[in-house]
């Protein structure tokens, strides 16, 4: 058992793009809803037992909620921040951050070179 823990992770390095983790997080969030149907609960169980990696990924997502109990809630976002937010969850957050940085750099360059704004 100990040897198992020391083995490298069976998942890809890129957790944010890993389909099993995506499915695990999706189940985790769906099950936390107050209205979970019997069918959904059964489907989740079936998914968990389908592949040991599924159960492992689910436990790894569940672990986050343990950690969250120790985190102080950050201040709420302002209306202005919320209104300006264009992130639609279609890509992982790390990709969004990268894009925001790139756009930001683009603007700065454009300003320096007095070019029309990039699109």
């Amino acid at each position: 058992m100990n040897a198992m823990i020391k083995q490298p992770m069976p998942f890809s390095d890129d957790i944010e793009h890993d389909p099993i983790h995506l499915a695990a997080a999706d189940w985790f969030v769906r099950l936390q809803s107050t209205e979970v149907s019997l069918e959904e609960t059964l489907a989740w169980q079936a998914w968990l037992h389908e592949n040991p990696l599924h159960a492992q990924a689910f436990a790894r997502i569940e672990e986050i909620s343990d950690v969250m109990r120790h985190i102080a809630a950050p201040p709420a976002a302002s209306m202005r921040e919320l209104a300006r937010d264009r992130y639609d969850a279609s890509v992982p957050i790390k990709n969004w951050k990268r894009r925001v940085c790139a756009v930001d750099r683009g603007w700065r360059w454009a300003w320096r070179l007095r070019l029309p704004p990039p699109h």
Partner: peptide, 18 residues
């Protein structure tokens, strides 16, 4: 949409913790 956001955030935290 809320659920999608939470899913993305969970994965982002998980990657960071790893």
């Amino acid at each position: 949409m809320v659920r999608k956001y939470v899913v993305r955030a969970l994965l982002h935290c998980r990657a960071h913790m790893d």
